[in-house]
Design a protein around this nucleic acid. Sequence first.
DNA 1: TTTCTACTGTGATTGAAATCACAAATTGAG
DNA 2: CTCAATTTGTGATTTCAATCACAGTAGAAA
Lengths: 239, 239
Amino acid sequence: MEVPNQCPHCTNDHCIRSVPLFASLEPDAVHALTDQMEHKSYQKGEILVREGDTATGFTVIRQGSAKAYRTSADGREQILYIFPANDYYGARFLFTEEKVPYTVEALEETHVCILSKAQFSLLLEKHSSIALQIIEAMANRMSRLETAMQSMGGRNADLRIASLLLEFKEPYGRYNGSHLEITLPLSREGLANYLGLARETLSRKLVQFEEEGLIELIGQKVVRILDLERLADLSVLVD
Amino acid sequence: MEVPNQCPHCTNDHCIRSVPLFASLEPDAVHALTDQMEHKSYQKGEILVREGDTATGFTVIRQGSAKAYRTSADGREQILYIFPANDYYGARFLFTEEKVPYTVEALEETHVCILSKAQFSLLLEKHSSIALQIIEAMANRMSRLETAMQSMGGRNADLRIASLLLEFKEPYGRYNGSHLEITLPLSREGLANYLGLARETLSRKLVQFEEEGLIELIGQKVVRILDLERLADLSVLVD
DNA sequence: TTTCTACTGTGATTGAAATCACAAATTGAG
DNA sequence: CTCAATTTGTGATTTCAATCACAGTAGAAA
């Protein structure tokens, strides 16, 4: 149920300018880009692109958010990335791979702008600074993957969960008074699929963390961090 | 015990030309580069760079091989990468991070060439094609990290080990007659640290694989693959 | 060769997380 | 608001891998 329409957020330049990747472009380049992009909308649960498809274009999430995951032979869903608004995906597999390496699914109502492979290549040629920014963005994702790998190689669930909370501190945390509160972007099931744990284990560990005074659960989407230091000790971060 | 010396392999142009990243450079650019690079040698077990150090330069492994790992609070060593000859590391953390994200340790006698951050930046400016090749190389590493994440999120050790064997098929496998044989680049302990498993579990699983007719162990460094198909079924790869 | 040191395999046991099963709570649609 | 559907928590149980302990093996050095 893709609804190709004129994305109201994209008919003016603001759209692209709020995407860090394009922040360095001059106004008329932004204008040109805006015209070329294709706009689509998705409801929660709809698939933006499916693992194994031939590469679509470079896709910017204008509004909403999405998860990227792979499905294993046993049916398990391993979430690899969570893309918040203004993030993008698809730069990488325009360069190397023919096939899309993961399924991307909307976590809520989501609007995206798509630039075709050809247009994206042209953009890269004209504005070489964008290549450097892509390298930088890729570097950040690699950092995260490396930390995830370390955390998933660990021996206990506490480590994974503590590392997850610290990872989410940046993008999803904010201070409410003096307390850091993280608004979880996924359901328990989703978090479990991100961590490679059973949902039940995650539930139990979270209440255990609460009993130990590490966190406080507020509703089921918000976690208040009570003891960041002890959480960091549990996590993968050394020193 | 770094032994800065004139690396015999680097005083002529061949050195750099066999590194895919620099394959596209013209002869005199190669010449200029060669002069700028610093050469070092390490014995097995020596540390090339340590996690948390301030970034050294872009480093090319001329001869030998190395492992990159992080150490967790509990002392566990999670291996993130294995760098074979002609591979390189350090491009990424010249862009973004100040601190080196992992320790690199020689797996055997190893010779490297190092390009300083400043020189590397200059190179990038002059030869924009190198930026694209770096993106491509990063894309490949990301692919591997994503697969690793999927495999480590899995529920059993068989999956991890089968995925490892398939991963090693490319770089370390070769056909001996009609049989595919993989020469393992690490000890059991090392492999276990790569997989996030206990050494004992890996040992047991390998003999189990052998009993089931999936593989045949030849000495302790070579694995002959007897049933690639069934191995793939066990692994993370779907279809 | 012999000796020493590393690495590797294997049994016994423990333990942590997966699974199974279901109840409680929350959400959302009508 | 009500009711169904989805999500979440929690107990009981099982299972698989970690750990502990040690013996066998290979490899390097003397």
